[in-house]
Design a protein around this nucleic acid. Sequence first.
DNA 1: CTATATTATTAACGCGCGTTAGTAAAGCGC
DNA 2: GCGCTTTACTAACGCGCGTTAATAATATAG
Lengths: 354, 354
Amino acid sequence: MKTKHVTSQDVANLAGVSRTTVSLVLNDVEGINISSETRQRVIQAAETLGYVPNANAQALASRRAQIIGLLLTRSPHHIASDAFITQLLDGLLEVVHQRDMRLLIDILEPEHQKEAYLQLVRAKRIDGILMSGPRFDDQALVALEEDGFPTVLIGQLPQTSFCSVDVDNCASAKMAVKHLINLGHERIACITNAAPFYTAAADRLKGYCLALEEAGLPYDPVLVRYGDFDMQSGYRQMKDLLEKGDAFTAAFVASDTLALGATAAIQEHGKRIPQDIALVGFDDVAFARYLNPPLTTVHLPVTELARKATQMLIDVLENDLPACKQVLLETHLVVRQSCGAHLVPLKGGETLGE
Amino acid sequence: MKTKHVTSQDVANLAGVSRTTVSLVLNDVEGINISSETRQRVIQAAETLGYVPNANAQALASRRAQIIGLLLTRSPHHIASDAFITQLLDGLLEVVHQRDMRLLIDILEPEHQKEAYLQLVRAKRIDGILMSGPRFDDQALVALEEDGFPTVLIGQLPQTSFCSVDVDNCASAKMAVKHLINLGHERIACITNAAPFYTAAADRLKGYCLALEEAGLPYDPVLVRYGDFDMQSGYRQMKDLLEKGDAFTAAFVASDTLALGATAAIQEHGKRIPQDIALVGFDDVAFARYLNPPLTTVHLPVTELARKATQMLIDVLENDLPACKQVLLETHLVVRQSCGAHLVPLKGGETLGE
DNA sequence: CTATATTATTAACGCGCGTTAGTAAAGCGC
DNA sequence: GCGCTTTACTAACGCGCGTTAATAATATAG
């Protein structure tokens, strides 16, 4: 690296003022009087030298790293098949950039979770944590909560004091299943998106149960399977459901990613979607509308979730308390063709053309 | 945050030594003699206090932030539909964690690109840059090159001195198209993954051309379209190809993501894959094998690319020069059903069951 | 027993910046 | 002219750590 580092002292020298003045000017400190003439001189000097403050020195002195951490608690393998992360990044970086902050991203493997949290927090690398997809059994989160470290969950963890941004997974799942019931289905299978210690998985399953209950349909455990984030598990669970031979005419797969795997299993089994088995997914990932047949699913406003969560976190950082502790965003059902609704003459789904 | 920050002074006090000794012990500085007795005392003290060094102070003093930056140059929208990032993260974080480093991720919007680079570099927030998907017209990269800032490309940029890890996009594309030619196709359309100022897009197109040339087939510009990263563009370009009416029996879509969109367009147009149009993609993203029909595609070792690139970058950081400047990893064609090869009795593709 | 090499430890400085307390100059009424 | 406020600026300290040069304690050689 050839270019030598320019320090605020260099700027001060060029502008003929003290380093303090440089700092005061460039940080726009309020309640301090600097003549607009010297102010200009400083700004000019900084510009010509291409001065950029050393972030570490700033962080050390100001006790703010200006970095927020996005922590993912799933295993790298699951991360790799997570269709959300990119959308999360989108919303997250948008807000982070607005505030002139940066994003540190990390995966915490379950074994070293607790230490890893504390490492990041105690090392003061990050000012706050954004945590996607919390689990009930996350012990490290307990430590964070006790510590009062600024944290916002993307997802929820009941009985904790965490700030969170989420959708109503239960109600959304219920809506999806209800849609199938309204289409006349009575034997509806369910594959969850993940193991039940993931809060979202548990809630979606609850929504499935509630929908059945309200419709007076029996809950049959034979028709319920637990997925594990990736397509493969969707494929496997659906294959198992089909091979076990318990009849069902529809399935609610609580994740589009798994639904894709399920679709493959169904078609491989010689059944048609939606004629033989109607399918509803969850998430409305990018590929949902391009599947064959296009997947009916619950739209999750992922980018908006990320935006809101980030804003909330920054809010906590700046004001020491958030404007609102728990936020729920709206979802809606996107009716395409995998549920068969277009066969019942009601209204058409969207087209790919727009 | 309740827990007060533990400094190395606290550790020193508890161990009854000086702060210097603490630093020397915990950093395992070579060529320095510390009696194993005090060494133990220090380690013990650090442990009981739960001491974690302040990363910013360390960075400031040692001039190493222990953070590498992953920079993405596409627009947030394109990021959101990028099926790679998660896989990249996987390989990247694996290596980064091994070295006890961290990952900062950032999207550089084309407008502020150059400044943004310099911000990160001059602020010494990151020790090195990992740059995914470089473009020919990236002026900021020129600045980086001149500056000699440690940088590794995931992708390539000919005529530059950058370290890079990539696949042979040209040869891989050629292999894919050749496969179609071997199956008897003579009119083969092509949709690139992106605009031609992305190096990968240009190379893949070149591979397409070479394959035609070697087979003595004419290059027909009418059959070539430029994609733009997302499914929508794949859909649009394929629709356009179909509606223009220029006959073709096969298509090489240089990105699975776009291929999915193309698939939807083809099926919507009432054509069958592969009977009417044989399709070969590129990338072998997670969903490729689950599509209907399963997508024949070029397998890209994304995670391995990320791993190698990260290792190379760290190599540069530690030794000031890499073991090897440019690395190419192997690709291979994954034959599934979208190309129709299974209809010609040669050998079957993989099954979903494994 | 003194001179020198070796081992074990620390005082002190610097990394680059934010910030407080304090100084100097200028303005203002009397 | 003298006090008093306001304005404009700076010296100096601290953030927490790495590191060098120096010191003290001990061992070895002459």
